[in-house]
């Protein structure tokens, strides 16, 4: 049994946050301008993720081509050193990783306007350098930023966040210690709306608490969206000013 005080009676979590506080969220885009068409690097707490978007480009095999829309590929590389203990295997063909890839593809297929890029393929490559809980949410944020950097049309921002439920208290943006101690839900929220593009529940969670959990999750996701938006605008401004000087 875990003897950690996950949520103290005074309302503080293991790392000193309150129930509705996000972790440190820092992001930057266009980090690898020469390696890919769009790229982003983001840190959400101790999750550190590089995302590269290549495309839309011509598929290597003609057989993969779809005449009506673009093809989306996601590959997630969880590095061996990303957890505190160095893992022996590369996580390449692990079931869990494949599942993550599939759900990411399904989710972004609905949110990227694939129909305006027929006969092309868009490759998304993710490298997880360090992970500390709520990884799925961070992957979503990284992809959103990189896709925007690549100039690929989307309907809106997608922001990902995980929420845990400790007894009756929902805890926003869980880290790995919290994630191990309770059941968590991962959300992918479309822009500033209350539309969910992803709802991932891998543990048991009481149905009557779910609404509560979703409410705080959506609010958190909107905060994430604003933080990404801020970063984007800052980046855009820098580019504009660079362009005008030249």
């Amino acid at each position: 049994m875990s003897r950690l005080e996950i949520y103290s009676p005074e309302g503080l979590r293991l790392d000193g946050r309150r129930w509705n506080e996000l972790r440190r969220f820092e992001s930057s885009i266009n980090t690898h301008p020469h390696a890919a068409d769009g790229s982003s690097y983001m840190e959400q707490g101790n999750n550190k993720i590089i995302t590269l978007v290549k495309g839309p480009k011509e598929p290597r095999l003609k057989s993969q081509m779809d005449t009506s829309k673009a093809l989306l590929n996601v590959s997630v590389n969880i590095t061996k050193f990303s957890k505190f203990e160095r893992s022996k295997s590369s996580h390449k063909n692990e079931r869990r990783v494949l599942e993550i890839q599939t759900s990411l593809v399904r989710m972004f297929e609905k949110n990227v306007m694939l129909n305006i890029y027929p006969r092309t393929v868009i490759d998304i490559e993710i490298h997880v350098l360090e992970q500390d809980g709520g990884i799925m949410g961070s992957l979503i944020n990284g992809i959103t930023l990189a896709l925007i950097d690549a100039g690929i049309s989307m309907f809106d921002y997608i922001s990902g966040i995980s929420v845990g439920l400790y007894d009756t208290t929902p805890l926003l943006d869980t880290n790995s210690l919290e994630e191990n101690a309770m059941s968590t839900v991962t959300l992918g929220v479309v822009g500033k709306s209350e539309k969910l593009s992803l709802l991932l529940v891998e543990d048991k969670i009481p149905l009557d608490r779910l609404e509560n959990v979703l409410a705080i999750g959506i609010a958190g996701a909107h905060r994430v969206r604003d933080l990404m938006d801020e970063e984007l605008r800052k980046h855009a401004q820098k580019r504009v000013s660079n362009a005008s000087v030249r």
């Binding site: 000193g16 101790n46 505190f84 880290n175 210690l177």
Partner: peptide
């Protein structure tokens, strides 16, 4: 009103070292 620092522990198990990094928010 938050600032963050990292808590780093090095734990050795069977001679090998394991690095544990945890965030620590100050308020």
């Amino acid at each position: 009103g938050l600032s963050v620092t990292q808590k780093v522990f090095v734990r050795s198990r069977n001679g090998g070292a394991t690095k544990i990094v945890r965030e620590h928010y100050l308020r």
